[in-house]
Structure formats: C-alpha cells, structure tokens
C-alpha cells in the first residue's frame, strides 16, 4: 500500500452523478409524450420536420465547433434539444427549409456566440423560431388540421386550418365552440408539440420531480397568464377569452414548463424565477390581446429573458444576515 499515486482534489469528494447530458436527456424524455401526440395528430410530416430540425441543429453545431477548432459539444445533447424544441413549436405544415433555417439560426446566432452552453441570454431555440417567424410570417402559420380535431372553423382567406386562438380573436363568440376538455386533451390546431396541455403538464411535472426544472417559474407563468386572462375576461368578455382558453391554447403550457425553465436565460433565485414567470405570463396574454399574430408566448419569454439579470438580483437574504442589510 505504500508509494501509490494518490489523487488529491478539493472537497466534496462525491457527487450525485448529475451531468448536463443527463439533465438534457431527461428534458427530451419529458418532451417525448407531447411530441408523440403531435406525430399522431399531424402524421409523418411532423415526424420528418422534427428529424430535420434536430439534424440541422446538430450539423450546424458540429460545423462551428470544427471551424473554431473547439472540442465538440454535441455530446451534451443540447443541440438535439434545441432542434427538437424548435421543430415542436412550428406548425406541421411549414416547409422543411424553414425549420432548417430556424435550427441553423438558433445555433449560429442564439447559442454559439455565447459559448457552447450556459451563456445564451435568450433560449437558442426561441431565437431561431422568432427569426423565422418574423421572416416568413405567412409560412410559419401553415397550420394543419389534426386527425382528431372536433371543431373545424374555417375563416375565409385564412391558411389551411385556423388555431382556436385566431378564430376567437376574429370572432369572440367562437369560444363557445371549443370545449375546454378537448383543448386540454390536445384535440386542437396548433404547433406540433404544443397542442396537448395534458401531456405537457405531465412532462413538466416529471421534469420538476426529477429536479431538472424548478416549480417557481412554471407556476408563476401559469398564474400570470391565468390572472391576466381572468381579469381581462371579467372586464371585457369579447376582448379577452377566458383564462382556461388562454392556458390551454397556443404554446402556453409548453412555454411554462419548457421555455421558462431554461437554464441560462432565466433567473436562478426562487423569487426571481417566480416573478419572471408571473410577469412573463401576464405579458403573453397582453400580447395575445393586442393581436400579435404569432408567438405571443415565445415573445413574452424572450422579452423577459432580456430582463433576467435584473431578476437575478432578487437574491434571498443569506443565512444570518438581516434582511435590510442585503
């Protein structure tokens, strides 16, 4: 036992085995049910779009790391997650090139300039999504009628299928056509991965239970949306749909559990996260009422992300310090 080479390092000498890669894989797993539901509803096109998005994101990242002569960061799976989230947030009818451009932009503009992981001020997938959404506002709204949608409201001059939110925006009385249960179970028109509040809720809870995401931001976001929509609906039922309608349509659930819980673009302190979510949720409803044609939730979260450094200043009082001293 003498003269062995012993390793010396600083405490702690054990870890819980949590790695970035595992946490990302958990996130992808949490997204899987909603994605599968999307494939079922929208068919092989949706599956192909997701595959294309992931491939494009990974290829871009591999290319950039190679050009910059850096260690490849593909292994942590973040590129896969970025491509997946991007593809799940677009409707099933979008052309392939749109998803490719979005994924390339997400990695090229949203992620890599800020370091491989952890520096991005805005969620990279949202950067890609909003770049393509502002560039091709018509294509991004290529909604497809899902297999099981019970309500088919067609508005003249609209795209193939109309999302509940658009239909209600044009004619508030249409809200009665949509049953809350249908919306909640995912029988609605919308982006591939965001149509099923139920499955997203389950996936989000899974993430929270696995401690990959924290509960403060999603709770704040849903609360913010619910409150804003509730107040709006009480004041003017024709101008603002009910809270449940807002929560179960569009990418509200997706945003709450998968976008508000990103790492680098959201605050890390409990109150910071909650306020981030709360204000973000209110902002999303405001943007919807104002008639933002696409991406109220992503925009709200992006805007809040820019304020993340401010929220990060809301730190709890450290142990043993007097509150006013902080």
């Amino acid at each position: 036992m003498t003269n062995q080479r012993l390793v010396v390092s600083i405490s702690p000498h054990i870890k819980n085995g949590r790695t970035v890669r595992r946490m990302i894989v958990t996130t992808i797993a949490a997204l899987a049910p909603a994605a599968l539901w999307g494939f079922y509803q929208f068919g092989l096109d949706a599956l192909a779009l997701v595959a294309v998005g992931i491939t494009a994101a990974c290829a871009t990242e591999a290319l950039i790391t190679r050009l910059a002569k850096k260690r490849s960061s593909l292994g942590d799976g973040h590129a896969v997650l970025t491509g997946l989230v991007l593809a799940l947030l677009v409707p099933a009818g979008v052309p392939f090139w749109l998803v490719i451009v979005g994924a390339v932009m997400a990695i090229l503009v949203g992620k890599m300039p800020f370091g491989p992981l952890g520096g991005a001020p805005i969620y990279p997938a949202l950067v890609g999504l909003l770049i393509v959404a502002t560039s091709w506002p018509t294509e991004i709204r290529s909604y497809v009628q899902p297999t099981t949608a019970p309500v088919e409201l067609k508005v003249e001059g609209a795209a193939d299928a109309e999302t509940p939110r658009d239909a209600v925006f044009i004619d508030p009385s249409d809200e009665a056509e949509y049953k809350t249960a249908d919306l909640f179970l995912g029988k609605q028109v919308g982006p591939i991965g965001a149509i099923s509040p139920l499955l997203l809720l389950l996936g989000g809870l899974f993430l929270i239970l696995r401690r990959v995401a924290r509960w403060q931001a999603p709770l704040g976001f849903l609360l913010g949306m619910g409150l804003a929509a509730g107040i709006g609906h009480a004041l003017d039922p024709s101008g603002c749909a009910s809270a449940s309608f807002h929560l179960f349509t569009g990418s509200a659930m997706f945003g709450a559990f998968f976008l508000c819980t990103d790492w680098s673009s959201t605050p890390v302190t409990p109150w910071g996260m909650f306020l981030f979510g709360l204000i973000g949720g209110g902002l999303a409803v405001l943007l919807r009422i104002a008639g933002l044609p696409y991406g109220a939730v992503p925009w709200a979260i992006v805007i809040m992300s820019l304020a993340t450094p401010i929220f990060d200043r809301i730190t709890p009082t450290p142990f043993g310090k007097v509150a006013s001293h902080a």
Partner: peptide, 9 residues
C-alpha cells in the same frame, strides 16, 4: 417580397 426578412429587420 422577402427572401429572409430577418436580415433587413
């Protein structure tokens, strides 16, 4: 009208 509107935004 646009190829990639983001660039002129």
């Amino acid at each position: 009208e646009f190829l990639f509107k983001f660039m002129v935004d």
